[in-house]
């Protein structure tokens, strides 16, 4: 599992790769939250293009980051979710464009 933080205009982008489960989600969460709070961006993009496995811990990660960004008066975008994980998102009621 790896998270690479970068900037795209006014947004902070978290490029997540590898497997997201309860074990790895804790480290992903810390890295993203620390970067967002230090960087001051109010728009966060979670990029799932490099994710190879995800269970509902990934959904918890998304919901938690949404709460974080709403608390900062900002917004969250989730992009590039692999097809194999979209059914999990659907179970959670998360619609992917």
């Amino acid at each position: 599992m790896q998270v690479t933080m970068r900037e795209e205009g006014d947004a902070a982008v978290a490029m997540i790769s590898g497997e997201i489960d309860h074990h790895t989600a804790q480290k992903i969460r810390t890295e993203i939250d620390d970067s967002v709070l230090e960087g001051g961006k109010t728009r966060l993009i979670l990029d799932f293009s490099g994710v190879t496995f995800m269970d509902s811990s990934g959904v918890g990660l998304i919901l938690g980051r949404r709460r974080l960004m709403e608390g900062l008066g900002g917004s969250l975008v989730v992009r590039s979710v692999p097809q194999s994980m979209r059914r999990l998102m659907a179970v959670a009621g998360i619609r992917i464009k």
Partner: peptide
């Protein structure tokens, strides 16, 4: 029940719902 959890704020409460769906 979906979204029911006692596991903290970053738990989605979807474990059993996912098991039943998959």
């Amino acid at each position: 029940q979906p979204m029911y959890t006692t596991g903290g704020e970053d738990r989605a409460g979807l474990g059993f719902a996912v098991m039943e769906s998959f």
